[in-house]
């Protein structure tokens, strides 16, 4: 059987919030080591990959690999019933389960709610993501990244990201004119979560659709920092760490000159 008990149900709520607007139906692959999810948006421009290792759970048992086809809107309805400090238990049978049980327990043990979510058949292409050496890595506050994407959306539907040795520039333009926001590599680091790190091998200059970046920033509550990995003519990677026990990575195909 598959059984996973998460002490802080709020984490699962946050994970779901960060994937459900991008991917409606997702395959949750469970094996002895971790739960993984990979899904693309309907236009095949963006992809989300989530990894949550067994260590994240208070109790984790997976006798046989099992794949749960989850409708994220249905799962979200159940998790709306959970408080952040509720315990969440996921349960499913071993072989081709057609449903998954979710049990919510209040912290004081006085309230238990249980739900059965019907699983869905999902025919989806899984993509092999190659190991890539990126030209630039930018690590920054996740809240600042969210702010920049939101602010620039007022000016255009795409953002140009340019990395040079010491800074990263986010630019957007449209009918109102042009907006540039430049972050400079932090000279001193007082608080790691507020500092900006630009690690550059080669300069990059890429353009991405802001609509998707704004969806990615739904993961902001998961981590204080975010890492952007960029290479010329390659998809952008936006990564949020889930503590020491996993990550949410978003991949976004660039817009290229016609």
């Amino acid at each position: 059987m598959f059984e996973a008990k998460l002490q802080q149900g709020g984490l699962l709520k946050k994970i779901l919030e960060s994937v459900k607007d991008l991917v409606v139906d997702g395959l949750w692959d469970c094996d002895g080591a971790a739960i993984t999810l990979q899904g693309m948006d309907s236009s095949h421009v963006a992809l989300v990959e989530m990894l949550l290792r067994a260590e994240a759970f208070e109790h984790y048992r997976c006798d046989r690999n099992v794949t749960l086809g989850m409708n994220h809107n249905h799962l979200s309805k159940i998790l709306k019933c959970a408080n952040n400090d509720d315990i969440v238990i996921l349960k499913a049978a071993d072989q081709n389960p057609d449903s998954c049980s979710l049990i919510l327990e209040s912290k004081n043990g006085e309230k238990t709610s249980d739900f059965v979510v019907s699983l869905v058949r999902i025919d989806t292409d899984q993509l092999g993501i190659p190991e890539t050496e990126y030209s630039a890595h930018v690590k920054m506050s996740s809240g600042e990244f969210q702010r920049i994407c939101r602010d620039l959306s007022q000016f255009g539907d795409a953002v140009q990201i340019t990395c040079s040795k010491q800074d990263v520039k986010f630019s957007s333009s449209g009918e109102t004119g042009k907006a540039n926001i430049t972050l400079t590599h932090s000279a001193t680091v007082d608080k790691e979560e507020e500092s900006v790190t630009v690690d550059l091998k080669e300069p990059v200059d890429l353009t991405f659709a802001l609509r998707f970046l704004n969806l990615f920033t739904k993961a902001t509550p998961i981590s204080d920092t975010v890492t952007l990995s960029l290479s010329q003519e390659a998809p952008l990677v936006v990564e949020y760490k889930i503590g020491d026990s996993g990550h949410i990575r978003y991949f976004l195909a660039p817009k290229i000159q016609e």
């Binding site: 693309m40 236009s43 095949h44 421009v45 963006a46 992809l47 292409d125 899984q126 993509l127 092999g128 993501i129 190659p130 795409a158 353009t207 659709a209 390659a234 998809p235 991949f251 195909a253 660039p254 817009k255 290229i256 000159q257 016609e258």
Partner: peptide, 14 residues
């Protein structure tokens, strides 16, 4: 203008 590329042109289907 710029054209939106698809992820499948960078990553192979498994």
């Amino acid at each position: 203008g710029r054209k939106q590329t698809a992820l499948t042109s960078f990553f192979k289907k498994m």
